[in-house]
Amino acid sequence: MSSTNTGEAIPPTQKTIIITRFDPDKDEVPRKQEYSVPCEDNWKVLDAVNFIKDELDATVSYRWSCRMAVCGSCGMMVNGEPKLTCKTSLKEYGDRVDIEPLANFPIVRDLVVELDGFMHKFEAVKPWIKRAKEKAEDKAALHDTKLTFSQSTEELGNFKQFSMCINCMLCYSACPVVANEPDFLGPAAIALGHRYNMDSRDEGNAERNEIFRGEGTVFSCSFANECSEVCPKNVDPAAAVNQAKFEAVIDWAKGLVLPSPSSGGSN
C-alpha cells in the first residue's frame, strides 16, 4: 500500500481496467474485457496491467521490459492517447481506463502489435554511418579519436536530440498521416534518417535525400505535430521531418547546378 509524506497509508482505489483482447486462433476481431483492479496511488498504468497478468488473468499478452521509459516496449493507447505505460500515472485517469494496442499497427495478440513494417521503414532510411568509400583513416580513427571520427560538441548538437529516440512507436500511433497512408515512412524513421544526415561523420546524405524525395516520405507529412506532442523523450520528430524536407529540396536544387556528388558504395 502506498503512503503520504507523513506515512499515512493511502487505500487502493478500485478502477475498471478495460483491455483489448485478440486471440488469432479464436477471435475474428478484437474484443474488450473488463477487470476490476485495486490500484495503488503511486501506480503507473503498466502496474495495473501487470497486476491483471499476475493476479487476475495470466492470458493477457503485452510487451514491457525496463519500467523506466528507456526500452520503449510498453507503448499502448490509454483512453485513446498513445502513452508509454511505465511513465504514465494511473491516477491521471478516472474510474474506467481503456487500454488498447497502439493504433495504426496490426494486432498480433491482445496488446501486442506487429513490428515488421516499422522495422522495414527503419531499414529503408539506411540508419548507419555511410562513408563514400572506406578510407585508410577510418580504420586509424577507430583507435585514435582525434582523427576522422572526432566530432565537435556543436556538430553533435545538430543531431543529438534526434538520436534519443527509443523506438516506442507512439509517434506512429499519433500520426494522422500514418492512419490514412500506412506506407508513409513515418516520424521515427525519418527522424533517424535525418539524424544520420546531420551527422558530420556521415557521407550518405545524397542517398537518403533521394529516398526522402520519394513517394510516401517527408512530403507526405502535413506537419500535424502530433508525433512530437506524444513523444515521451522529447525527440521532436516533427522538427526532423520538416528539416528533412528542407534538406531534400536543397539537395535537389544543388543537383541541378552542381555535378552530382558520389554517394559511394551500397553498404
Binding site: P24, G80, E100, P101, A103, P106, I107, E114, H120
Partner: peptide, 25 residues
C-alpha cells in the same frame, strides 16, 4: 529484417480507438 512471409501470422488489422476524434489534440 527480411519481409515477412504472407500469412505467417494472422493479425487483426490496425485499429484506431473508437474515440480517436474526441481527444483534445
Amino acid at each position: 529484417m527480411a519481409p515477412p512471409k504472407p500469412a505467417r501470422t494472422r493479425a487483426a488489422p490496425p485499429q484506431m480507438p473508437s474515440t480517436w476524434w474526441n481527444t483534445p489534440r
